[in-house]
């Protein structure tokens, strides 16, 4: 079974993240890494590979440094990587990114399953998997916490507040997984050494045959027009218990419409 995993290189969520003058993510001020939510997708792919036969290809779209996200996936155990990298991609929104991923996946060869994470830890929109499925003409099984592949079908469970749905689709399909699905492994030192020898293709827009006007800031359907820092957390209210602490707490919760 051939599995493609989409991964994203994001600014470290523990750093002081901000935007640049053109309202795109600042990728220089903060160290980048493989989005932690994508590690679950890589792990899911590796587990499927280990339980049968197949090959895991990781695909990323991003600046030069995004090669690190591919490298980390290869160190974890993926077999080969694809990095779509072109200056004209800068500022691409979710729809444009899904176009690039779709073209890269088509170019990378035969596949049975496309895996993605729940969302990126920077954009956190969670729409790219669905858009990608649409572009590839695949059934989409999104946000599942379990994953089984048997015969020509894939089955997963999507948990929500009110119910758990079991969703089944025929392969090839696209599946996005949550952070509940597994415990991603750390690379091993042997994995680090092995990753050196694994093939990574770097493709430009020309390689993919994608017109530069369809991607980047200009080609994106959505645009960030302004941003504001989240206001600092305000000082909490301290309730002094003079025998009526419970009542005061209940009143506070009621006033805030929590109860």
């Amino acid at each position: 079974m051939n599995i493609v995993v989409c991964v994203k290189y994001v600014p470290d969520a523990q750093g002081d993240r901000t935007f640049k003058d053109d309202n795109t993510t600042d990728r220089e001020g903060v160290d980048g890494l493989l989005s932690e939510l994508d590690e679950y997708a890589v792990e899911a792919a590796l587990k499927l590979k280990e339980s049968g036969e197949g090959e895991v290809t990781v695909v990323t779209v991003g600046p030069e440094a995004a090669a690190d996200a591919v490298k980390k996936s290869l160190q974890m155990g993926a077999d080969k990587g694809v990095h779509v990298c072109d200056d004209a991609i800068h500022g691409s929104d979710a729809a444009a990114t899904s176009l690039l991923l779709a073209e890269a996946i088509k170019k990378s060869g035969e596949y049975d399953l496309v895996l993605a994470g729940l969302a990126s830890t920077d954009g956190t929109m969670s729409v790219v998997p669905a858009m990608l499925a649409e572009r590839l003409g695949l059934p989409q099984v999104t946000q599942v916490s379990t994953l089984e592949v048997e015969g020509g079908t894939v089955k997963g469970r999507r948990d929500s507040d009110v119910a758990s749905d079991t969703i089944e689709a025929s392969l090839p399909a696209l599946v996005s997984v949550t952070d509940q699905i597994n415990e991603p492994r750390y690379p091993s030192f042997k994995g680090i050494m092995a990753a050196k020898k694994k093939p990574v293709e770097t493709w430009s827009l020309a390689d993919l045959g994608v017109d530069a006007e369809r991607v980047g800031l200009a080609g994106s359907w959505t645009k960030v027009t302004s941003f504001a820092k989240r206001p600092p957390r305000e000082k909490g209210e301290i309730v002094t218990d003079e025998g009526d602490g419970g009542t005061k707490l209940a009143e506070y919760l009621a006033a805030q419409k929590f109860v």
Partner: peptide, 9 residues
């Protein structure tokens, strides 16, 4: 480079 990756790990 691999040593640097090892420290990173």
């Amino acid at each position: 480079d691999e040593s640097a990756d090892l420290i990173e790990l």
